[in-house]
């Protein structure tokens, strides 16, 4: 990355920035590539103003500011993006998971009667949905906050746990469709749990 006369300031800056970014290698790579390009532009600009190679590197990293602060700024931006993606994922997956349980659980004559009997069987579910659905819709908007997305994701996890608990209580009579719905819920709950952890990590790094 650096030329043969590199003093190592740029590499050290990028290493500190990379270490402070709580994202995967896949998420970290484009950020470091872009900042590296900017740092090299800065080194070239300072060299053109007459600084030698070492001083040009030192001036470039000073110009960029504290790498930990830059990581915090990136984390803040990534927190919002992750919160929004979480909200969108819950808004899109919610109807599928919900419909799978409704169709699999009921013996009623209509979808509405199936919904009524499912909510009657798991009353707390209605309360969780009253909190979780609006939170997911709000989290899917561009001006969302990490807290809203966490509320939405935790609501989904609780709803899935309630439904799977209800299924376990009647496992001996459960149909294959109910186990398929439980599979969907388990997948969503695992994904939502991972998202909550990621948002919490990003939010912690943003401060």
């Amino acid at each position: 990355m650096d030329g043969p006369q590199s003093a190592g300031y740029v590499e050290e800056y990028l290493r500190t920035l990379g270490d402070a970014l709580p994202v995967s290698d896949r998420g970290r790579r484009p950020i470091l590539t872009e900042v590296a390009d900017g740092l090299h532009c800065a080194v070239e600009a300072h060299a053109q103003r007459g600084l030698d190679a070492v001083d040009a590197e030192r001036a470039a990293v000073a110009e960029f500011g504290d790498p930990r602060q830059l990581a915090a700024d990136f984390s803040r931006q990534l927190t919002v993006a992750c919160a929004r993606r979480t909200g969108l994922a819950l808004v899109l997956s919610g109807p599928f998971v919900g419909m799978a349980w409704v169709l699999a659980s009921g013996q009623g004559t209509s979808v509405v009667s199936n919904v009524v009997s499912l909510v009657a069987a798991v009353p707390v579910l209605a309360l969780v949905l009253v909190v979780g659905v609006p939170a997911a819709v709000m989290a899917s908007r561009s001006s969302t906050s990490a807290g809203t997305a966490i509320v939405a994701a935790v609501s989904a996890i609780v709803a899935d746990a309630l439904l799977m608990g209800w299924l376990l209580a009647r496992a001996s009579t459960a149909t294959g469709m109910l186990f398929a719905a439980a599979g969907l819920s388990a997948t969503r709950a695992a994904t939502a749990t991972a998202r909550v952890r990621r948002i919490a990590r990003l939010r912690a790094a943003a401060h």
Binding site: V35, G38, G65, D66, Q69, L70
Partner: peptide, 8 residues
């Protein structure tokens, strides 16, 4: 600080 521009 130049770094400011990238997250923005």
């Amino acid at each position: 600080p130049t770094g400011t521009v990238y997250p923005a």
